[in-house]
Amino acid sequence: MRFLAHVDVRLRHGIADPEGATILRALPALGFTSVASVESGRSFRVELDAADLEAARSMAASLADRLLANPVIEESVIEVEPLG
C-alpha cells in the first residue's frame, strides 16, 4: 500500500533560530506589527510503500530520525495517511 508521510522538522526548544528571528524582524516593515514570534522549520512530503499504516509510520519515523532531521538540534512531527 502507498502512504503519504508529512514530516515536519523544527528546531528543538532552546536552540537558536536565526532564520525565525530575521523573519520576525522583517515583518514590521510590511505592516505586521503585532506578530509575537516566528519559528522556522522545514516540511517534507514523502510517498512510501508499506504493508500497513503502522509500518508506514515506523518507516517515516526512522527516515526522519536518520536523515531528514538532525536529532542533535531538531525534532520531527510525523503524520501518515493512506494514498488512495
Partner: peptide
C-alpha cells in the same frame, strides 16, 4: 564529522544569517 557523529554537536546558520 558532526553529522557522522564522530564529533558531538552541530553547526547552525551564523547568527544574523
Amino acid at each position: 564529522l558532526c553529522e557522522a557523529h564522530l564529533l558531538p554537536g552541530a553547526l547552525q546558520k551564523n547568527r544574523g544569517l
